[in-house]
Design a protein around this nucleic acid. Sequence first.
DNA 1: GCATTAACCACAG
DNA 2: CTGTGGTTAATGC
Length: 226
Amino acid sequence: MDKPKCNNCEFKSKAAKYLNKAELENLAKNCVSVDFNIGEVIFRQGALSSNIIYIKKGLVKVHIKGPYKEQIIKIAKAPKYLGLPTTFHENINQFSATAIEKTTACFIDLETFKQFVFKNGKFAYEIIVELCNNELLSFRQCVNRTQKQIRGRVAEALLFFCNDIYENERFIIPISREEFGNLIDTSRESVSRVLSEFNNEKLIEIEGRMVNILLPGKIDNISRNG
DNA sequence: GCATTAACCACAG
DNA sequence: CTGTGGTTAATGC
């Protein structure tokens, strides 16, 4: 844990770029940066919090308790705000976040953050843009989870890792098969099966968690057509 | 009926 | 933690 120098932060959010010098100094005074190792909980559902959390670096899984089990909502890559949707009206976290890669997160005092929103329109606008994107994403995830079959959902998840997270056809799946299944709402067995199908069909190469997408076009097709 | 899809179980690395 | 095979239930021709 250390005091960040927000002024010349190399991971400054799009919104924070609109903060002036005085505001950035104020932010620095009311914010701490914390490093997390893989598997460490960044914030936990049910715990009290008066912070906005900004992921500067790393990869995080967002999860929430359902009626039966813990459910992974999404994988979120830095840079991104995470504590946002609930903290304005609630000071109890409504979901949890856990690091799945080495991650650095800033904990920003809620009152300080609110003042920026009240007084700096451009800052607030960028926050709204991020929220809108989040909402759109969760709408899409909702439709896809319900309407696509498992092959489509696995293909979609592979493309997500490939395009949105690693920007590379070769990558290492950052979660277990169990968690993969949880994320796309299916069993670990089905994930295993479909991945080896794709492997046998020469669409991907897979060895453990290492993936190489050989035919992104075909995978994209499967993803689209469910 | 028969085929497809996917979950659950069990067992082996 | 994974991969695979058998079984079972639901759904759609």
